[in-house]
Design a protein around this nucleic acid. Structure first.
Length: 480
DNA sequence: AAAAAAT
């Protein structure tokens, strides 16, 4: 097996890697590092979680260590472009961590914060500048920064840049960078437009490295879909958090307001939660992320701002409260868990009107996401009855009043039809019935509709705790 | 149709 020590990296880098306890490169690192060290361009097809950041940061730092020279004034030797502020921050931190024994200077530039600090940081010049496109162009327009000194250009998450409309800004920025340079270009997928952009930016015949075939879902993630009526999602989410195994959870919503709403709902049932989305101030975003990383809150409720790139250790579960409109986002969202070799689980809520989204996701990922029911999970009791799997082949069914679908004998055809409108009884949406945070609430019976004692009722009024939940702080959901 | 990012 290749070790970092076999790659010929500069001493201070090996020391930093040893400090962090890293000995073995991931596949993308093993493939990319030697080529990038030798000065070749790189085209990397890789998602986050593959060790991509180190795959470029290490050989870049190596080149800086081998060719020491003062940073160019008001400029940088290395420019890294990233789509989001969070990702830019994270990349900057990686450069600092790996470069800590070689006195590398790093600056991160993005919007939403004052200019002054960024200008001061850049005035003497830095070795590495990490930036989001908008603010960088701003600085370039003001001539507070030049890119004349750039020797290495990195484009990270290029496909997301495309999605976010950054292609034009990227082309503008590239015009500011000297033609003679090394280029590293990373993208999770390679749509035609990205292919074209990569050809414009890269020197001919770049080293190509591909770690995950495009749009394939990470295998180690235990995935389940939960069919649930829209109005019961909130109760179901609270139920998931009853399980002590849900200790560090990212909950994705489709909208910014939805993220706030869900976070409030969790707080109301005693689960500490923070939300993060693009309408929050930069400070709020940073505080939310920090609180979640520090384990001060169990839940981070996020829009797709957090779907890609951001790297948080030990996320136990990803819950998709709403399915994304863009199927690819599903893959990015679940990729927030099972990172760095850890296990992780992903639960997707699917309401009737989301069935077609689920179908699209399954098409894109070329896999069928198992539903959470007795065929897939052991010791499931009433919870299964509460969530019969609908007939998944014919989505038209979804439009029909429920209670009459046939699902080939597997799901319980809950006769007696729960009138959808009557399903108002999720009393647990009320504040106060779960006084203390964090701990497992006492056997709260206020989970109607969720754990009726039998398959007979579904919207019915309350019931006992589902089996498997007793005492241990673990419940049926622990299977995840 | 929503979200992100420059303001």
């Amino acid at each position: 097996m290749t070790q970092f020590t076999d790659l010929g990296l500069a001493k201070p880098l090996l020391k930093a890697l040893a400090d962090e306890g890293y000995t073995q490169p991931t596949p993308i690192q093993a493939q990319a590092i030697p080529g990038v060290m030798s000065g070749r361009d790189l085209l990397g097809i890789a998602q986050t979680g593959t060790g991509k950041t180190a795959a470029f940061a290490l050989p870049i730092l190596h080149r800086l260590a081998e060719d020491k020279k003062p940073a160019p004034r008001r400029s940088a030797r290395v420019l890294v472009l990233a789509p989001t502020r969070e990702l830019a921050t994270q990349i900057g931190e990686s450069f600092k961590a790996y470069g800590k024994h070689m006195g590398v200077t790093v600056a991160v530039v993005f919007g939403g914060v004052k200019y002054g600090g960024q200008m001061r940081a850049l005035a003497p010049g830095v070795d590495v500048l990490v930036a989001t496109p908008g603010r960088l162009l701003d600085h370039l327009g003001e001539k507070s920064i030049t890119l004349d000194g750039v020797e290495i250009l990195v484009l990270d998450e290029a496909d997301q840049m495309l999605d976010m409309g950054f292609i034009v800004p990227i082309r503008k920025i590239v015009k500011y960078v000297p033609k003679m340079r090394q280029n590293l270009f990373f993208s999770a997928t390679m749509p035609a437009e990205i292919e074209k952009l990569s050809a414009e930016i890269l020197n001919p015949n770049p080293l190509k490295v591909s770690v995950t075939p495009q749009a394939t879902t990470v295998e180690r993630i235990n995935q389940r879909v939960l069919f649930v009526e829209q109005q019961r999602k909130r109760a179901l989410l609270a139920e998931l958090f009853d399980d002590a195994g849900f200790k560090r959870v990212i909950v994705f919503t489709r909208t910014k307001r939805g993220a706030d709403r869900v976070a409030r709902g969790l707080e109301q049932v005693g689960v500490e939660a923070v939300s993060i989305h693009g309408d929050k101030s930069q400070g709020q975003r940073e505080r939310a992320l920090a609180a979640f990383k520090a384990g001060e809150v169990r839940a981070l409720v996020a829009t797709d701002i957090a779907a890609r790139g951001i790297d948080i250790d030990a996320v136990s579960h990803v819950v998709q409260y709403e399915l994304p409109n863009v199927p690819e986002a599903y893959v990015h969202r679940i990729g927030r868990t099972a990172r760095a070799g850890a296990d992780g689980s992903a639960v997707a809520f699917c309401a009737d009107d989301e069935r077609n989204l689920l179908k699209d996701i399954e098409k894109v990922t070329r896999q069928r996401i198992p539903s959470f029911d007795r065929r897939n999970d052991r010791h499931l009791g009433a919870a299964t009855a509460a969530m019969p799997e609908p007939t998944r082949e014919k989505s038209e069914r979804a439009a029909r009043p429920q209670g009459q679908k046939q699902g080939q004998g597997k799901a319980q055809p809950h006769r007696g039809g729960h009138a959808p409108k009557r399903n108002r009884n999720h009393a647990d949406a009320k504040p106060g019935h779960r006084p203390e945070g964090g701990g497992r609430p006492a056997q709260d019976a206020a989970k109607p509709g969720f754990k009726g004692p039998s398959r007979r009722r579904r919207g019915g009024g309350g019931g006992g705790k589902s089996e498997g939940g007793g005492g241990s702080g673990r419940s049926v959901w622990s299977n995840f």
